[in-house]
Design a protein around this nucleic acid. Structure first.
Lengths: 122, 122
DNA sequence: GAAACTAGTTTCCATGAAGAAACCCATTGT
DNA sequence: ACAATGGGTTTCTTCATGGAAACTAGTTTC
């Protein structure tokens, strides 16, 4: 039986390409936060999102949402309410990002503890 | 027994903070690629890294490596070879990023297939 | 009629990220 | 003497990111 080579050059290059692809799709200061929120809440209005993500401006939010919609990670639905509202919802495909978001969250949480324990000993 | 509330506001905000922390630590065009390479290869020289990450310039590489070192994700060791070489190595702490890198890689790989199957039907 | 709300778009501007190229230093090879 | 190699740093310049504020537009409330 041929031994599986972890460092097979082609596999390594392909892996790096895949990583680049993912990172590029989630590039920009806010996309991960938006996805993170929508993975959690499933669907939100424009203003709810704006309130939920402190610091983001309307322009940025609208731009990032457009890009996420283009990549089919979220859907945009105009609701026929009195003052018109727009609902942004995560797609099943967008939900496949959940493991990434979860890993980012748990790592960040542990990192906080790590910082505490190392700076406390100074 | 009290039911665990996923949407507990404090937990949600903390989770978003954790995500921001992680993303910020890995911000920049190249850090994830560098970490990805070092998680895979364990240790590399400066020039090896430069060759392995197509497109990166010396300035960027050096800057990103410094930042990663500050955050204790990698170590920098000057080797006493004839033309001096510097070895960059992932730390045990840096290795804890492996799950994130792995998720990014698998998602990116699946995304390629997803793109194929949707554009092929056009 | 004026103001407020939602959901943006547009314009203008400042900062910063990133690339290219030149340079530095030490050593080895020719 | 000169070029090459490894590991950078410095300078200069450009382009993209992103923020603030003003504006549009339809509907409802005062």
């Amino acid at each position: 039986m041929k031994k599986k080579l972890i460092h097979e050059p082609a596999a390594c290059a392909g892996r790096m390409l895949a990583i680049r692809d993912t990172v590029e799709l989630l590039s920009g200061k806010w996309k991960i936060q938006i996805i993170g929120t929508l993975v959690f809440e499933n669907s939100m209005k424009f203003m709810e999102l704006k309130r939920n993500i402190p610091g983001i401006g309307a322009k940025m939010l609208s731009k990032e949402l457009q890009e996420l919609e283009i990549n089919q990670l979220i859907t945009r639905t105009v609701c026929d309410t009195k003052p018109i509202t727009v609902e942004y919802k995560i797609t099943p495909y967008g939900l496949t990002l959940e493991p990434i978001i979860a890993e980012l969250a748990t790592w960040g949480t542990n990192h906080r503890k790590h910082l505490f324990s190392t700076t406390a000993s100074n």
